[in-house]
Design a protein around this nucleic acid. Structure first.
Lengths: 138, 138
DNA sequence: GCCATAATTGTACTAATTGTATCATTGTCA
DNA sequence: TGACAATGATACAATTAGTACAATTATGGC
């Protein structure tokens, strides 16, 4: 499930920079569901070879996608599609997504023996810390 | 008493190196009392097979834990939890574990676009749901 | 019981894979 | 021509995998 082909069409004469074309097409494939969370993208070198471009060009595209939180690049490991932000369309999906995430967190915390009070307090603290720390964020 | 299962959850796309995840989780389980002194951890090869990673990755994690005096690795014998650190250290580890766990959860939820209020509410709901599911819990 | 030998377990070193950082080259356009 | 953006070349760093080895324990013949 984590391996897919990733078909990209690069037009070398289009005037659009190659890295921009890569960014756009990956973005589009994520949006359309062709690429799904956890899918592993080709390595910068593999994709570069396939597209006949320098791997730094692919790396540049990956960096932009990484900064946009669309993919997660990990040195020595590879690059992966991150979870897509839940579409606003269905409130239900959105809720279930948060529910699943929260359930994983809560059950793990409880398993490690933390009390509900501790958990609630820590969540509160972290949320507060985020408010104060986010001058540059979002 | 010296043999236990050691349940670890490795997230291959989390961005955290595998060896770091192993270190964190073992540390958390020691701090929380799930793992006790003299408990034997799985061999590097056994744990590696279970997690589907190379045994050197596990060995690396064990070495870090060994240097932190949390476990004792003995060539030809196995690896064991050492004496519990003094309460002050345990308390710090415990707190750090929860903090790290919570931080990952909160940042992920915020990244997915959920509001602080939604997150707080969902945590509260889940904690409550847990109480009702198992009445014995605090 | 004792010793040789195999099996088990961690260690050390090296290689392979992957992304990162920095600077050089090229090409376009004002 | 000069500036700047895009791409390429090279060296590097982080993570994981491969291979050989050393220490300990288990086993089996005598």
């Amino acid at each position: 499930m984590a391996n897919k082909k990733l078909t990209l069409q690069i037009d070398f004469r289009s005037g659009l920079p190659i890295y921009t074309q890569i960014v756009n097409q990956v973005q589009a494939q994520v949006a359309s569901g062709i690429l799904k969370p956890d899918d592993q993208l080709p390595t910068v070198r593999a994709l570069a070879e396939e597209l006949r471009v320098n791997f730094n060009t692919v790396a540049r595209a990956y960096r932009i996608l990484d900064e946009a939180r669309i993919i997660s690049t990990q040195q020595g490991r590879g690059t992966f599609i991150t979870e897509v932000p839940p579409p606003k369309v269905t409130e239900r999906l959105r809720r279930e997504s948060l529910e699943a995430l929260t359930q994983r967190f809560v059950s793990e915390a409880l398993r490690l023996g933390f009390s509900k009070g501790e958990i609630r307090q820590m969540v509160s603290d972290q949320l507060k810390a985020w408010s104060e720390a986010s001058k540059s964020e979002e």
